[in-house]
Amino acid sequence: MPKITMNVNGASVSAEVENRTVLSAALREEMGLTGTHIGCDTSQCGACVVHVNGKAVKACTMFAVEADGANVDTIEGQAHADGSLNIIQQAFQDHHGLQCGFCTPGMIMSAAALLKDNPKPTEAEIRDYLEGNICRCTGYQGIVNAIMAASGQSAAIAAE
């Protein structure tokens, strides 16, 4: 089986995988990084979004061998070194941007990619950008509010 080496969340990691092993499976099963979730088989739901060389991709729709030599960032690497939540994660907690938590890793990774490209998105831009991330719990409002807040913009009050 091919051996791949990736820099995952800042640490070099190697694994033997089959050619058919997708990146999400390599992360979950070979590297124990189960924060990247699998919610569908058609590349629609976005629960598996990670960053490969700084770009958001769906880890279920990329072969692990294609990530050989790449920098991969997953949800497990998003918090600060001291374990505290980063600004996006904190905003999701503050604005009730999650309920069951299953889509959340993908949402956080997509939000991070959005804010990297567009530090002050409008609400419409946020909603448009999240086209590939499905949440069944929140109705998205808490998520949108969280991303607005993480970008330093005022969000609608989450709780009344």
Binding site: A56, V57, K58, T61, A113, E131
Partner: peptide, 9 residues
């Protein structure tokens, strides 16, 4: 086309 993650691939 698709969504941002799809467009990156």
């Amino acid at each position: 086309i698709g969504d941002p993650a799809v467009r990156n691939r």
